[in-house]
Nucleic acid binder design. Structure first.
Length: 376
DNA sequence: TGCTGTTTACGGGTCG
DNA sequence: CGACCCGTAAACAGCA
């Protein structure tokens, strides 16, 4: 069984390591850790109530997740441990055995919330180590790091349930997608998943949902998977770019170490801009007979979209050049064991029955992680 | 009409 | 201090 200290040791903290157990010494505190609920939870000792418990969940229509695995009401924490086919803490690698691993290890019947919570369990380890500047806690709860103690700590802690989680939207989306059976979700499912887990996001929905949409579109690490004709509905599925695997290194979901960028996509964008510039130049020199030729290659309606049609992912498509990342398993979303990459997962559910993403695993990658190559 | 998706812009925070 | 990441707002287009 993993002890909380084992989890602490296994996760690279964003900043300082804080012993929340000692801070929340009072088990009756609203924000005490939940290890007392079930000893078998092991590492759950570091879990706090940023994650919604079942009791706090309002009745809401649970959408059916991709793959048809219905998401029921989250079970109590104790039930989670009891229903998990893999005893929590026993088969989980000390590092990198988070969402991705659990998402595949648990029985399909086990609701995805449990998986998510299991996965977040480790994430919260990093969470508890969040730097004051990053955490919504501010200086709160930082023990010796606390710049100014709240006048009424208990009252503060009670509001803590609905405090904003320290995860970026990209992290949340990544977690949501990773925990889904098919490693892809619709926009609405992502909304639901986030709201189910984090009460904070049940308010101001317009604001953060706009950010979610922006994140999905703007970040190359998310790819759109069109619906199959036999699965009509609104919106496409969203999956993780196969190359985006190590955005969150060392289990830290607070801030990406590297930003995933698809080089080919960038190149195409530059080419398009170049072409536009040439065209503008050409029109500006309309008196001349100069013939401007460009090398712009049209690769499809949306270079970030995959699986739309057999011809969509061709050799010119950025997706055609993707391959599963070399997994050294640093993120809790990935497993030491062979967790199917998002691409591999998608292969089994590709809407049109084409192994579109097979391309991804066969050809060289043009995707890369841009940004700080160095870890914390 | 509302949702989904894309894009641009801007400001704040973090890191080397 | 610059580069980068992130959150937010907003405008716009397409679609069910």
């Amino acid at each position: 069984m993993l002890t909380s200290s084992a989890i602490y040791n296994s996760i690279k903290m964003e900043a300082h390591e804080i012993d929340w157990n000692s801070y929340y010494g009072d088990p009756n505190e609203a924000y005490s850790t939940q290890s007392s609920m079930n000893p078998s939870m092991g590492g759950m000792a570091v879990m706090n109530t940023y994650i919604s418990s079942s009791s706090s969940l309002p009745p809401m229509s649970m959408s059916s997740y991709a793959g048809g695995a219905p998401m029921g009401a989250p079970p109590p924490m104790g039930a989670m441990a009891a229903t998990a086919s893999v005893p929590l803490g026993s088969g989980i690698p000390p590092l990198g055995g988070g969402l991705g691993h659990m998402g595949n290890a648990v029985s399909p019947g086990m609701n995805s919330m449990a998986v998510a919570q299991n996965g977040t369990m480790q994430t919260l380890g990093a969470y508890s180590g969040v730097a004051p500047s990053v955490s919504p806690l501010g200086g709160y709860g930082q023990g010796g790091l606390c710049a100014r103690a709240p006048r009424d700590p208990k009252a503060y802690r009670r509001n803590y349930t609905h405090a904003k989680p320290p995860y970026s939207y990209i992290s949340l989306i990544t977690m949501a997608i990773q925990q889904s059976p098919n490693k892809m979700m619709t926009l609405n499912e992502i909304y639901q998943w986030i709201m189910d887990l984090f009460p904070f996001y049940r308010q101001n929905q317009q604001r953060w949902q706009n950010s979610i949409r922006h994140s999905l579109s703007f970040n190359d690490c998310f790819v759109k998977v069109p619906r199959s004709p036999d699965k009509p509905g609104k919106g496409s599925f969203w999956a993780l770019h196969p190359e985006s695997g190590n955005m969150f290194e060392n289990g830290c979901y607070l801030r990406r170490q590297k930003r995933f960028k698809c080089e080919k996509k960038i190149a195409q964008k530059l080419q398009a801009q170049e072409a536009a510039r040439h065209q503008q130049d050409a029109s500006g020199h309309s008196g001349t007979t100069t013939c401007v030729t460009t090398n712009v290659t049209v690769t499809g309606p949306d270079t970030a979209t995959i699986g739309g049609s057999p011809s969509l992912v061709d050799q010119n498509s950025p997706m055609a050049d993707m391959k599963p990342p070399a997994r050294t398993c640093l993120s809790p979303l990935r497993s030491e064991h062979h967790t199917p990459s998002p691409a591999q997962s998608l292969m089994s559910v590709e809407p049109h029955g084409n192994n579109v993403l097979q391309h991804l695993s066969l050809s060289d990658s043009h995707g890369h992680l841009k940004g700080r190559p160095k870890l914390l």
